[in-house]
Write a protein that binds this DNA or RNA. Structure first.
Lengths: 173, 173
DNA sequence: CCATATTTTTAACCTGGGTTAATGATCGAT
DNA sequence: ATCGATCATTAACCCAGGTTAAAAATATGG
């Protein structure tokens, strides 16, 4: 069975208004979410009260808290709709079980997890090796459309700096 | 078949002297490496000539460049032995192929990739949300043994700061 | 055990981005 | 169209960590 067919079959489609949370930091949530429509942000509320954005999520992405879904721990971040959204939520635990007896599902899982891991490694690289300004320049180059879709405040929080800092960077040459 | 049995069967055991590179940034390398003995570092040579350390690798860890192994691109980092090492190298492409027809291998792949992805997310969190000082305090708490095994220079490069910076942090109360 | 290399610390000075706060620009709901 | 809320910019000041360089402490190979 095709992976998307699988998700449609085992999952539940839900409609969410802009501003709604799928889950909040501290919740337990065993689901992954396939995004059919809309944009979301996954973000941390830091100890000092500030927010930083872990990632933006777009149509066809899959998002969820692995630590909560796989280990049963609490979500380390919150997931919020930046626009009205249509998503299919499905159980990660069930997916792991189903993939353990269905080779096709397992293959898709391997592919999905490998690509996910590579994305996380890229982000790690950017945060470890690049200055905030370099990260911004790279984003402008690699995802110019993203800049149109979310506020500059959120871009700053994604880059790990403040909106004031980003405004300064933009107005440097 | 057990996963470790699989690795032993398809892989090649190699002995490496301290200081040897398994691969260098810019190489193509399709292998994953299971570490039987020794400590290694995965590190970037940044554009400005500085080095930053992506991760330390210990016995029973598996390390390789996913982007090179899975996508055939060049390795974005180098992998070097910090001590004499015994490792088993095996092809990632072959692993993916074998896992596509062997459910047991596939299950292990899913487990391995999920745990790997969670580790990368934890690192992302630390780099995005914590100050260098907080990252150091966390490391002291979570991996005190690591501090004994590698130089302070390398700890600094792992935290994303300079050795001078780390020395200062240590000598703050 | 000595000589050399590497690691760690210290000091002086610098800079990117944080903080606070005020101002203006936009957006959205009524 | 208007009001309040959010967003973006600017300015003044601050600070964590970078840079350079030198000294002190440790390792390491012969």
């Amino acid at each position: 069975m095709d992976f998307f067919e699988y998700i449609k079959q085992v999952g539940n489609e839900i409609i969410l208004e802009k501003g709604t949370h799928l889950f909040r930091q501290g919740d337990e949530n065993e689901f992954l979410h396939f995004i059919k429509e809309g944009t979301l942000k996954a973000y941390y509320n830091n100890a000092d009260g500030k927010e930083t954005i872990k990632s933006f999520i777009m149509p066809n992405d899959i998002i969820g808290s692995l630590t909560s879904a796989y280990l049963g721990k609490k979500c380390s971040f919150s997931l919020k709709c930046l626009s009205d959204c249509k998503v299919i939520k499905f159980s990660f635990a069930k997916l792991v079980i189903d993939s353990s007896t269905n080779q096709q599902i397992a293959n898709k899982m391997v592919e999905f997890l490998t690509i996910f891991a590579m994305k996380k490694e890229q982000r790690e690289y950017e945060l470890l090796c690049l200055s905030a300004e370099d990260r911004y320049r790279l984003l402008v180059n690699d995802k110019p459309d993203l800049l149109e879709m979310v506020t500059q405040n959120d871009i700053a929080k994604y880059l790990g700096i403040t909106p004031v800092g980003l405004s300064r960077i933009k107005n440097r040459q």
